[in-house]
Design a protein around this nucleic acid. Structure first.
Lengths: 232, 232
DNA sequence: AAATATATTGTAAAAAGTACAATAATTACC
DNA sequence: GGTAATTATTGTACTTTTTACAATATATTT
């Protein structure tokens, strides 16, 4: 048994971290949340909000907690995406990082830097600064995944406010998929799917004809077998 | 700096492992490869082929190497699927495990137990014995993933021999998707997709009308934009 | 009242999906 | 050599979905 312990010792000396790719959406398009690092290594860089996992905490719980600690964000939609494990991705030792993506409604959540995060800000996905570690690779992976998922899962509703216009719904699809759709065909498809419903309410404070506001009907979507998404 | 080292120490005492879900396919249907453990913990159990990662090895490389070491399988199609990190999933300490799935052509590869694997065998996915750790959960996750992927990626060709009949191609889809298709419609769809081609060869040593053999045309599939799969 | 801005709606043609059963080619057996 | 057994192969009519395409409606601003 002493022998076993000695053998094990060589394996139990790595660390594991979580890195979150938090997507948000506004009139400008798709955004990613970055923090300004106030801690070693890479102090003074913008980076994905992430941290080392304490060995006594479950993985899922750690992911949520780390995001909350650095940005104040709580109870957001999160999903594990991929683990990155190059030998020298971290200067302090062997650190595997488990990437998550999170989708939030920017209207409802107001990120605030905390703990060793000195600042937190939204960046357009097309205007990301230089990132430390392999965070650029992680971010690109997350973007690809979001793009693939959006066609087959109703994820967009995690990014839109509760009430939204069909124009906004179309714009978010077009932004993420980097592809344009015909207005009439898009509306026909969405409405015939049955997963969104009219609210009777109209858009306010706009300088043109106000649009009808719709909302996502999650239970109907589920009932209709829509774990699947909208387009295709 | 000494302070930093002390802080880091509490994080650098976990281990990371790889667990492989190796799928194969034969006349009986979908199979999974398990090893008979000859090493602690859970000596004497059938389990997914997996092992701890040496801290000085890259993740991808480790996944391949561990599979090869335990089963002799080399150069197989592998893909990372998910990381599992419950606090007490491993009796020897905190071990995160990174699950991979692998798809192999059973005709071409002949697994052979090696290292501390005392045996290796194929099990029908419907007849899996009790598994240690959270291997059952990992296996079910992998099955769900395979089922989802098979509709949109040409993964079946990793499981079929180089030359295959349309009947076999249909059977593998039906086995994985747990759903039946109309023979005529299935053939129409597959053939019109253009990603498989006739070989002119016929099946041999069968006791009935021999079927035409087809093969996957990877370059044409790619050219046609088929990272996507066949059905839907 | 006119200009500006965005919202909303329909139709015809093409493509894809679905339901459905008879005939063909081989081996095995008598 | 003929018949039975087994699996392989193929077409058509109907329905549904997708696609291409532009005029009208409703609000605010000037």
């Amino acid at each position: 048994m002493k022998n076993l312990k000695k053998i094990l010792k060589q394996y139990f000396n790595v660390a594991v971290s979580v890195d979150n790719v938090v997507f948000g959406f506004d009139a400008d398009g798709l955004k990613v949340l970055l923090i300004f690092r106030g801690s070693e290594p890479f102090t003074g860089s913008w980076a994905l909000p992430g941290d080392l996992i304490s060995p006594e905490m479950d993985l899922e719980y750690s992911a949520e907690k780390i995001l909350k600690q650095l940005t104040g964000l709580d109870q957001v939609y999160m999903e594990q995406i991929q683990t990155f494990g190059s030998v020298d991705r971290h200067p302090f030792g062997r650190v595997f990082t488990i990437a998550y993506f999170a989708l939030i409604k920017v209207e409802n959540y107001h990120p605030q830097a905390a703990s060793w995060a000195k600042d937190v800000a939204w960046f357009k996905v097309t205007e990301i600064p230089k990132l430390p570690f392999d965070h650029r690779e992680i971010l690109e992976y997350a973007r690809r995944l979001l793009k693939n998922r959006i066609r087959t899962q109703p994820l967009v509703f995690e990014l839109l406010p509760k009430y939204f216009t069909l124009t906004a719904l179309q714009f978010i699809h077009e932004s993420i998929l980097e592809e344009e759709f015909d207005v009439r065909n898009f509306r026909k498809k969405i409405l015939s799917s049955g997963i969104i419903e009219e609210t009777g309410k109209l858009q306010k404070n706009v300088t043109h004809r106000p649009a009808m506001l719709y909302r996502y009907n999650a239970s109907k979507a589920k009932q209709l077998g829509f774990e699947g998404g909208i387009l295709q």
